[in-house]
Amino acid sequence: MDKQHYVLQAKGVDISVNSAQGRLPLVHDLHLDLKPGKVLGLVGESGSGKTITCMALLQLLNPKTIQIGGSIQLNGRELNGLKPKEMRNVLGKEIGYIMQNPMNAFTPVYTIGSQFVETIRAHTPLTKKQAIELAVSSMAAMDLQEPEKLMRMYPFQLSGGMLQRVMIAISMCLRPSVLIADEPTTALDVTSQMQVLSELDRLRKECGTSILLISHDLGVISALADDVAVMQKGRIVEKAEAFQLFDQPQHPYTKKLLQARPMLPMEYEREKLVI
């Protein structure tokens, strides 16, 4: 596959931070390629640099203290080193971002509706009325009940799972080509986790969005990802297609991650069948 086929491509990205002890490297020589309509899973334990990587891709880090080297390209356009003002046009419109904790991602003092409309109107010339219509329809598409009523509600009136779906609705209403989901289900319970994952799956199928799915949970990764990259201590130690990674892990760290999961009885059965 040649270069044009990647929606988001990171080449040789190094991230380092200035601290009292001098420059500390955080991420070394990172290569990531996101193909259109595919889900790339990024997995690793806490502190391995997953979140810092996606913040770097979004250029959200403070350039005074953190240096990013290498190249980050979105549809062939270089993002690294873009001015904050230019970056603002890209974020939300071309890259969607879902954070780990939906409770912190919203301002508690404004209604869901006003935050939704603000995002839409910042990027499009739509009128307020049109923006509201778009917001309601995209919330309805996310299987949220009574979207008109939700528009007038405050974030704390909704449950975590619902807020996360509103978040996905906001990030998806402008049809970005890439969605970065940083631990989208970690703060949710199992049933809402399943719901959020199936919404993400639907987006990928219906809109052809590429998703960078970051998680520490191999269960989430195996539910959705096409390709998986395993990260440890700021390096990508293994990159493979999902089936291959689960069947034939190469790196010892990947094996450790795979073995780290508590098994259920029916899975032992399946495991036996495979062998």
């Binding site: 399943m194 539910a223 399946r270």
Partner: peptide, 15 residues
């Protein structure tokens, strides 16, 4: 609850 257990292998994904 049981149906929302995540698969341990992409082969068994329910989504």
């Amino acid at each position: 609850l049981v149906s929302s257990i995540l698969p341990e292998h992409p082969r068994n994904r329910t989504l």
